[in-house]
Design a binder for these strands. Structure first.
Lengths: 138, 138
DNA sequence: ATAAACCCTATAAAATATATAGGGTTTATG
DNA sequence: CATAAACCCTATATATTTTATAGGGTTTAT
């Protein structure tokens, strides 16, 4: 399951996508719309910003805005950023690899091999679905 | 990511699959093979047993054994049992459904819709991969 | 009778996720 | 140039979940 952080990030991105014509959107507006804590959401938006998904404008009249086309924001990107690995095991993660302590020899581990296949097929799905798909469904 | 519980369960099932010709296998043997705590693994095997995946024999000379063909044990089953939902959000879970607090109207939520699609495609993968696939890779 | 081995429930410890706090910096505006 | 609005940053507290341990109970081969 996705963490609340990731879920809230998706809601925020969706909100920003829906208000694309406005210059900026306030944290407060998104937080109120979805009943999310202002401060918690703020941390999330900052992470999205640092990752280059959002732009912001400081000072009075400022706020956040999308700096990418919704079709160029795949779910895989958001999930990796806020939740971490998409792979089901650390030993098959592309971006967060770690060996599994209980596995004597990864090279001949059937679980490892199958999980690589699962990872590749899952990635196909999550790289293919984008913010644009979400917006089209609203 | 899968919990250690699920990961250990997969190792245990794999071990049992590899020792199919023996009548029973000791918890201790599996635990030692993978360096897992005996007691922790015991809880996991019990869950697998209650779920009808394993049989056991009590008393001296007892142990655990598979009671299903490896091809009839899909990853989806093991994951759901020990980790819970496969869906990425509670509001799209088939087996563990819960509404999302921050979502005013699930019926018109684009995130919900897309996550249903992701769930269905992910399920296809995890229902298709079985213990047999793991055993074949070893 | 005894020891081996699974069965069951409760609790402790550790890790992670969630949320809060408090101030710092930037900027439009009058 | 003073002010208020709004983002920026880091640290800490709280809650939840995961992981592990503990301690005995029950069954059965020998």
């Amino acid at each position: 399951m996705l963490s609340k952080k990731t879920k809230y990030a998706l809601h925020a991105l969706t909100y920003l996508g829906k208000h694309k014509d406005e210059k900026t959107v306030l944290i407060q507006d998104i937080a109120e719309e979805h009943g999310i804590s202002h401060k918690f959401l703020e941390n999330i938006l900052l992470e999205l910003k640092k990752a280059g998904m959002l732009g912001s404008k400081k000072g009075k009249g400022g706020g956040y805005y999308l700096i990418k086309e919704p079709k160029d924001i795949p779910l895989s990107r958001v999930i990796r950023l806020l939740d971490g690995p998409i792979a089901l095991l650390p030993c098959v993660s592309l971006n967060y690899y770690e060996p599994c302590a209980e596995c004597k020899n990864e090279a001949v581990c059937g679980i490892n091999r199958v999980m690589i296949q699962v990872r590749d097929e899952t990635l196909k799905i999550l790289e293919n679905k984008t913010l644009d798909d979400i917006l089209r469904e609203e």
